[in-house]
């Protein structure tokens, strides 16, 4: 039996991203994904972001956050290439009723398009808003972490295309190491805001695609505290049962104490 490969994933250093979107295009090319409205898109007016979000035909998405003071004394343009986080505890996988979503031997999360029936539960479950229906296949789709390429021993298309190594691919162990060094370096150079998002087990057991950020997660459109959907399962179920019991009791009481004036039984 072949040895289980190590968990693989991405470390994305947003401080060196130049927003070139090569990753977005490389992903589309490799996965042959269609374009918004056949390429006849309209200007969003939201900085240089015209694809707006991750969805079934955008498995990578580059975010542009303009931060300028009115006098322009201070200004930043935060650029970040977003993708499925390949959560170790994956919300999408947890709720999927068809088992279309699986965990691969690389510890990545993949939706099997031939199994998915489009119930869309995973869409509402993913805390990062990663999944959407691809109108061509009619199924839920997202980044596969290039499962096909990984199986062939190749690097994912997006990280390979990234000219600045903002997206780095490798074993999680190795990436966490590299990322921590970069954070230390940035801090030493005076960038005290640098930190890693999702690099340890605390967030959903660890994100296999984690980030180096220099502002609060929500600035990048990331949840500060993503949770598993099942957190509500127990309480929700018990409370529903309680509701049922209450209703049942009301019914029993109502039907036991009924007043006089029985009518005719004539169906």
């Amino acid at each position: 039996m072949a040895a289980q490969p190590e968990p693989m994933g991405f470390y994305t250093d947003t401080t060196v991203c130049i927003g070139c979107k090569a990753c977005e295009v490389a992903c589309k090319e490799w996965n042959q994904l269609p374009s918004t409205n056949g390429g006849k898109n309209t200007l969003s007016g939201d900085s240089y972001d015209n694809t707006r979000a991750l969805d079934g035909i955008h498995w990578r998405h580059v975010k542009f956050v303009e931060q300028f003071t009115d006098d322009r004394k201070d200004g930043r343009w935060l650029l970040m290439s977003d993708v499925c986080k390949h959560c170790v505890h994956a919300a999408c996988l947890e709720v999927c009723p068809t088992n279309a979503i699986i965990r691969t031997e690389f510890d990545t999360v993949v939706i099997q398009s031939d199994t998915c029936n489009g119930c869309r539960d995973c869409i509402s479950a993913c805390p990062f808003g990663v999944i959407e229906i691809n109108p061509v296949s009619g199924t839920a789709q997202k980044c596969t972490l290039c499962y096909d390429r990984l199986q062939a021993g190749k690097e994912p298309a997006c990280s390979q295309a990234c000219p600045t190594q903002s997206i780095q691919f490798g074993t999680i162990r190795d990436l966490r190491d590299r990322a921590q060094k970069r954070v230390d370096q940035l801090k030493q150079m005076g960038e005290q805001r640098a930190y890693l998002y999702g690099a340890d087990d605390k967030m959903l057991g660890g994100l296999n695609s984690f980030y180096l950020l220099v502002d609060k997660p929500e600035v990048y459109g990331l949840p500060p505290d993503p949770q598993m959907p099942s957190r509500n399962l127990k309480a929700g179920s018990w409370l529903s049962a309680l509701g049922a019991i209450a209703v049942g009791l009301m019914g029993v009481i109502s039907f036991r104490n009924r007043g006089a004036g029985a009518g005719e039984d004539r169906p």
């Binding site: 927003g19 070139c20 979107k21 977005e24 295009v25 589309k28 090319e29 269609p34 374009s35 918004t36 409205n37 056949g38 390429g39 006849k40 898109n41 309209t42 200007l43 240089y48 015209n50 694809t51």
Partner: peptide
């Protein structure tokens, strides 16, 4: 970044047009 010069090489490509429409 998303386009190339007079556009002959980019404005025919849906993948690029959606990025800078």
């Amino acid at each position: 970044t998303e386009h190339y010069l007079a556009g002959g090489m980019s404005r025919w490509l849906p993948w690029l047009n959606e990025l800078q429409p």
